[in-house]
């Protein structure tokens, strides 16, 4: 009996120590809720939510200062995930923040670009390369499509182009169409 007690007590001490160690070793930096919210946000960094980037919006949401339906790039899908995570009611995207659009990337008309570096400074993710008075180019795979470079361009040479589907990014459609004939027949 005593030995069993001792064993249990020893185990408890050991596990306690291990847990304590783990808490120190795997200490989560920052606020875990903010990070969880931030992981859902699309990181377009466009500011359409009214905050200077996704993280600030995530922080505001975590503090209950912002609604969950303010991020147009995240769309309905994103709002659903946020509603799940935060235990709030789903609501449609707030139209004041903008509309959900197909993902686009910026494109610089190299003939017109004067190399003023203004777009480069506006880009939140350093997706534009170029030096002063040199032609600038968008590094398309890095561009989030935030459109922040459009307004600063003095010669209006940046346009947004929707990202085209390729054989590698193509997705199989949801096979629900198979159900249609049945539905039609039962309805008739």
């Amino acid at each position: 009996m005593l030995s069993a007690l001792l064993v249990m007590a020893g185990l408890a001490i050991l596990i306690g120590a291990a847990l304590g160690f783990a808490a120190l070793k795997f200490k989560v930096e920052g606020d875990p809720l903010v990070d969880k919210i931030d992981a859902i946000l699309p990181q377009t960094q466009c500011g359409q939510c009214g905050f200077p980037g996704c993280k600030p919006y995530a922080t505001a949401m975590a503090n209950g200062e912002a609604d969950i339906n303010c991020c147009p790039p995240g769309g309905e899908d994103g709002i659903r995930k946020l509603a799940d995570l935060l235990g709030r009611e789903f609501k449609p995207l707030n139209a004041e923040n903008g509309v959900e659009k197909p993902k686009s990337v910026a494109f610089i008309d190299e003939q017109t670009c004067i190399g003023c570096t203004l777009c480069l400074q506006a880009c939140p993710v350093d997706a534009i390369s170029g030096a002063a008075k040199q032609m600038h180019t968008i590094i398309a795979p890095l561009c989030t499509g935030c459109e922040l470079c459009l307004a600063p361009c003095p010669v209006d040479c940046i346009t947004m182009k929707p990202v085209e589907e390729t054989v590698d990014t193509w997705k199989w459609r949801y096979p629900a169409f198979q159900l249609k004939p049945v539905a039609a027949r039962t309805a008739a």
């Binding site: 500011g47 009214g50 200077p52 400074q121 939140p124 459109e147 922040l148 459009l150 307004a151 600063p152």
Partner: peptide, 20 residues
């Protein structure tokens, strides 16, 4: 500029959205 761009997006998002 960086601040300005974000500022603009924040306060003038309608104007910014309209154009593009």
């Amino acid at each position: 500029l960086i601040d300005a761009a974000l500022e603009r997006a924040k306060t003038k998002k309608q104007a910014a959205a309209e154009k593009p």
